[in-house]
Design a protein around this nucleic acid. Structure first.
Length: 891
RNA sequence: GGGAGGUUAGCUCAGCGGUAGAGCACCUGCUUUACACGCAGGGGGUCGUGGGUUCGAAUCCCCCACCUCCCACCA
């Protein structure tokens, strides 16, 4: 107990009228940390069932953005809920080294110092980057903690930790030895800006307004010109053939002959290939094998040589000839066109809109070119991942993503996994002086295999997503097959992430998890939408509409931020985030605060009861317990279905509507009354409040923790925090459908009286008398039985059964006919109008229901209860019409 | 060219077979012994267009229109 007291927030015993998240949120974060509440256990240490979520690791040097806040809120909600359900729940945190991103940041820093990575060399550059990582890596943890994340920080991982690095090397070596990884010269996407190859996924195709140029090539041994169409004239310098469709009648005679490449005078063959579309351009295609993926394939089929005319820096090479070598690729284009124009060989220029691949990161056009790289052939692993989703071992939510998943995995191509970067996992391959390649776990093994220590390691690093693909197994201890964590938590249960990395990450984890882990890496994947601004626009720095989650936490409190994000997470939708909405949920927090404050001020000596005995409770108590039970059932069910939005709506309306607006008001007479009724009512109020705090805890952990600890009678030596309290479940014995219906009538009667005050512009406390004149027996009896409560809620002078004064205002609500005595009972103009409108509405609905009932097909085919419902509705409409019509006629 | 999603109250969105809901915004009253981050009451929608299925459609099916996003080597 004493240790708890020490880390209790220092807040005053007296509660302020307004809650102030800043005063207690950091204190509870510290409390959780100091009590080490979220450390999970291995199966050796506990027999509780396990539950595991792995964090999608943020960039180690990054700052959390609003998307992280969304995903973290959802992950924390899930893991807190499961933990409270008694699971050995683990939310494993960590960070990613983010190869390109981090390297670029450090390079930028070097540039500012007037140097570069090339200048300082690889070793010093890596030292710098590690230092940079050390400096920033605690930021992510701090930021997650400020959101209230209940991660097990003792298990924090970083993709370049020793253990994870070993996992990466092990996976690489095994895949290599299985023949799934190989090195070769193929067409890759080259980013001249980043100076590295990138994978297909890192290329974004953008529609570009360009030109289609028609260039005339001379045919050898004739005066004939062969016109080809191209969008990239500069690549002609690397042409090694012209291709036409084999069946194209225009070019039959030319197949097998040669053309002379303009500008360079090279003799190139004219070949026939199916890939050529006779309808496009001139029907003849220039073939540049080393700078176009299609041409590469054509060249392979025809055994054509390739020439590198564009270098890795985006400039033309010496192969491009003396006039062009050294020029930037775009400058070369102009120069080539100019030269062709002079020679009269540029025979046409048309506007042409086409798609050009751009580097996702750098933004510049990607240069397709042949390069020696490492590739991972994921074909059969992809089939495994495909099957896992098809047969439900992995559930994607929303399931609309299944098709996308299938399409991508069915048409998957080898994955280019090498990057010409320095920051990352260096490829575990060594070369002997003879150029022999040895793949091994480390230098010693490589030396043993090669029979020499004169080895040079491959200079490339692996794609960041390669290590990310191993995250589910590597963080849990793989390749150590005896790892207790792996045995306890693998397969993990839930993955929450954005759809934008479905292929980059999720699919690849599925492949690697199945391959190395022997099972799916996670059973369910919850894909979130994109967080947008209040108007639904994408957040971007240039637009200046970026919302920083930590600033939002400062302004509204972490719980309000979390509640908002969870409440807006509806499947398949982007999330428009309006700070106004967050203010609304901050108000909700304040409501919870004040409800508790009120309860604490009126409960006397009552304590939160261990068990609640239903016997002898009055109707309002039985009612709120019934509502609570149904809410608990609903919330659990919606959490289970990952419908956090629906769960949050229900929590909000239960607490604010049922508990505050109605129950607390209903309980007030007893709470302010004598000692006969007060203790029991106070107990129920405390009980419901305490259970409600538990119910709300996964969404609003700080506030619920703060308030829960203020409630009297909780044995904190048993359960030190609400974070570890049992999550409420529905209690069917308290659910009372009939009682809830009767209460509905009571509520409507009270509302009708209140409406009348507004209609008549009466004083809030104007003396009113209410007569219950008739109606449905059950409801009437209940309203009369609860007469005292109705009187206090509706602020009535008196309430009686029987016929009211002649000039009273009459209405029928929820089956109860009532007459309200008002001093000046004349209907005003506005009221008459409203009555008229209401009668019209009733007449309209009556016609519609009558028509339905007059239709024999409806009566025959519709379910009995629907027909009965319609009949009852018709009767109710008629009763109400009669009352209102009499009312209107009587004045 | 394929695929997915969207089109419901002024705004942002739920609902997805029995004639419409929320939050915010708006209007009208309120120092009511927890809360103005409050209380009570209210106005506001032919659920994108056109067909079809059904006793009955915002809800299922088809067409169209307009948005958004993925995927795709026609130079």
């Amino acid at each position: 107990m004493s240790s708890i007291d020490e880390s209790q927030p220092p807040g005053p015993a007296e509660m302020d009228k307004r809650f102030e998240p800043k005063q207690y949120e950091p204190a509870w974060q510290r409390f959780w940390r100091e009590h080490d509440l979220f450390r999970s256990q291995t199966r050796r240490e506990t027999d509780r069932p396990s539950f595991c979520i792995l964090i999608p690791p943020p960039n180690v040097t990054g700052r959390l953005h609003i998307g992280h806040a969304l995903q973290s809120s959802l992950q924390d909600l899930i893991v807190r809920w499961k933990r409270m359900q008694g699971y050995n729940a683990l939310w494993l945190p960590g960070t990613d080294h983010a190869g390109i991103g981090t390297q670029l940041m450090v390079e930028r820093q070097l540039a500012a110092e007037g140097t570069s990575r090339q200048e300082i060399g690889r070793e010093r550059f890596l030292e710098r980057t590690w230092a940079w990582k050390q400096q920033y890596h605690s930021n992510i943890r701090e930021q997650l903690e400020r959101l209230g994340a209940s991660c097990d920080w003792s298990r924090e991982r970083f993709t370049m930790d020793d253990g994870l690095s070993l996992a990466v090397r092990t996976a690489f070596v095994r895949l290599y030895r299985e023949g799934r990884i190989h090195r070769g010269e193929y067409m890759v996407n080259w980013s001249p800006g980043l100076q590295t190859a990138v994978s297909d996924l890192e290329v974004e195709s953008k529609s570009v307004r360009g030109k289609l140029y028609r260039i005339a090539y001379a045919v050898e041994g004739s005066d004939q010109k062969l016109v080809v169409a191209t969008t990239r004239p500069e690549t002609m310098l690397g042409d090694t053939a012209i291709a036409v469709h084999p069946a194209d009648p225009r070019y039959q005679a030319l197949i097998g002959r040669h053309a002379i490449l303009p500008l360079l005078g090279r003799r190139i063959p004219i070949v026939a290939d199916q890939a050529v579309d006779p309808e496009f351009g001139s029907g003849a295609v220039k073939v540049t094998p080393w700078h176009d993926p299609n041409d590469f394939e054509i060249a392979r089929r025809h055994g054509l040589p390739g020439l590198r005319v564009i270098g890795f820096d985006g400039r033309m090479t010496a192969e491009a000839g003396p006039s062009f070598g050294g020029l930037d690729r775009f400058a070369a284009r102009e120069r080539v066109l100019e030269a062709l124009r002079e020679l009269g060989l540029l025979v046409g220029v048309d506007d042409h809109v086409h798609n050009v691949g751009h580097s996702q990161r750098g933004g510049e056009p990607i240069e397709p070119m042949v390069s020696k790289q490492w590739f991972c052939d994921v074909g059969d692993m992809a089939r495994g991942a495909l099957a896992a989703v098809r047969d439900g071992r992995i559930e994607l939510q929303p399931d609309g993503w299944v098709k996308t998943w299938e399409h991508w995995l069915e048409s998957i191509r080898p994955w280019c996994i090498s990057r010409q970067l320095w920051w990352g996992h260096r490829i575990p391959a060594w070369y002997t002086p003879d150029g022999e390649c040895v793949v091994a776990l480390d230098f010693e093994e490589a030396a043993g295999l090669a029979g020499t220590r004169e080895l040079e390691q491959d200079s490339d690093v692996l794609d960041t997503w390669f290590s990310a693909a191993l995250w589910p197994i590597s963080t849990l201890g793989w390749p150590d097959e005896d790892s207790e964590d792996l045995a306890t938590f693998y397969p993990t249960d839930v993955l929450v992430t954005g759809f934008d990395i479905l292929f980059f990450w999720v699919a690849r984890m599925a492949m690697m998890g199945l391959h190395f882990g022997g099972d799916v890496p996670f059973r369910r994947v919850h894909l979130t939408g994109l967080v947008r601004d209040a108007r639904g626009e994408k957040m971007s720095k240039t637009k200046g509409n970026v919302l920083d989650p930590l600033e939002l936490v400062d302004e509204y409190g972490a719980d309000a931020v979390r509640f908002t994000l969870c409440a807006l997470d509806s499947p398949g939708r982007d999330i428009p985030l309006d700070p106004e909405r967050m203010a609304g949920y901050r108000a909700f927090g304040n409501k919870i605060w004040n409800a508790t404050r009120f309860a604490l001020s009126r409960i006397g000596d009552a304590r939160v009861p261990e068990h609640l005995d239903a016997v002898g409770l009055a109707a309002p108590e039985r009612w709120i317990l019934s509502r609570f039970s149904r809410t608990a059932g609903f919330v659990n069910d919606r959490f289970e279905a990952f419908r956090f939005d629906e769960a949050c709506q229900r929590l909000y309306h239960f607490f604010w509507g049922d508990l505050c607006d109605w129950y607390i008001e209903l309980a007030k007479p007893a709470l302010f009354g004598d000692e006969t009724s007060r203790p029991r009512v106070a107990e129920v109020l405390l009980w419901v409040l305490e259970r409600s705090l538990r119910l709300l805890h996964p969404v609003m952990p700080h506030l619920t923790e703060e308030l829960w600890h203020r409630l009297p009678g909780i044995d904190h030596s048993g359960v030190v925090a609400v974070a570890l309290a049992r999550y409420p479940e529905p209690e069917p014995k308290w659910e009372d459908e009939e009682l809830e219906q009767r209460f509905e009538a009571l509520q409507q009667v009270v509302s009708r009286v209140r409406t009348l005050r507004t209609e008549r512009g009466l004083e809030r406390r104007a003396r009113l008398g209410l007569w219950i004149e008739g109606g449905v027996e059950r409801e009437v009896a209940f309203v009369l039985e609860q007469g005292d409560l109705v009187r206090s809620l509706a602020l009535l002078e008196e309430l009686r059964q029987g016929a009211g004064p002649k000039d009273a205002v009459r209405d029928r609500v929820a089956g109860v006919e009532l007459a309200i005595e008002v001093e000046a009972a004349k209907l005003g103009e506005v009221e008459r109008e409203r009555l008229g409108k209401e009668l019209e509405r009733i007449a309209g609905e009556t016609r519609s229901v009558e028509a339905r009932l007059a239709n024999p097909q409806f009566v025959d085919r519709a379910p009995g209860e629907v027909v009965a419902g319609a009949r009852a509705r018709l009767a109710e409409l008629e009763q109400r019409r009669a009352v209102l019509a009499a009312q209107l006629a009587g004045h």
